[in-house]
Structures are given as structure tokens and as C-alpha cells.
């Protein structure tokens, strides 16, 4: 249950597959055009329910509530050993006297 005033992310289908542009590749056309927006809930709502939010610019938007208190999880990824190797190689060539 999300409360009125909670910061949530909502989801919408903008275009179902049959209404999408004809110029698209098949794999894209097979899927709907979907949209996500964040805002403050104007009324209590369950996750999965359609509700209204007020966005950062003060717009009113409606959609299915998908997340409460959404946050970012992107990071610097897993260890990539090649990155260290590049650094080692070019330092050696530049400063270490390799021909």
C-alpha cells in the first residue's frame, strides 16, 4: 500500500503494438511503447493499481503504480581485468622504454 504524498514511479502503455509506427523493425513493433514517470501520489493506492501523481514540474499524470520510493542502482559494474591491463601496457610503452 502506498500512501497519499508518497514518491512513486508509475507506468503506462503509450502505444499498444498494433498502433506503433509502421517503419519499425519487427522486434520493436511486437512490443508496446511504454512510459515511466515519477511523482507524489494524490491518493492512497495499491502497487499495480492505476493512480494519479503530481510530478516535479507540477503535472498531473496517471498510471499503474510500480515502485514506491524509487531509487537508482546503477554503479561501476563488475571487475573488468582488461581495464587494468590497458593501463599497465600503455604506461610501460610510454614510460618504460619498450620500442
Amino acid at each position: 500500500m502506498a500512501k497519499k504524498g508518497d514518491w512513486v514511479q508509475i507506468h503506462n502503455v503509450v502505444l499498444p503494438p498494433e498502433e506503433r509506427s509502421s517503419a519499425l523493425p519487427e522486434d520493436t513493433k511486437a512490443n508496446p511503447l511504454e512510459m515511466w514517470v515519477k511523482g507524489y501520489l494524490t491518493e492512497d493506492a495499491e502497487i499495480g493499481e492505476v493512480a494519479e501523481v503530481v510530478t516535479r514540474t507540477g503535472r498531473h499524470a496517471k498510471g499503474e503504480v510500480v515502485k514506491v520510493n524509487p531509487y537508482f542502482e546503477h554503479n561501476f559494474g563488475f571487475f573488468v581485468p582488461e581495464v587494468l591491463e590497458i593501463g599497465n601496457t600503455v604506461r610501460k610503452i610510454t614510460f618504460g622504454g619498450e620500442d
Binding site: V14, L15, L24, T28, N31, P32, W36, V37, R56
Partner: peptide, 8 residues
């Protein structure tokens, strides 16, 4: 405000 969409 960020409006996010799928590919297209």
C-alpha cells in the same frame, strides 16, 4: 522531471 520510454 524525467519521462522514460522504451525503444522507438
Amino acid at each position: 522531471e524525467v519521462v522514460q520510454l522504451t525503444v522507438g
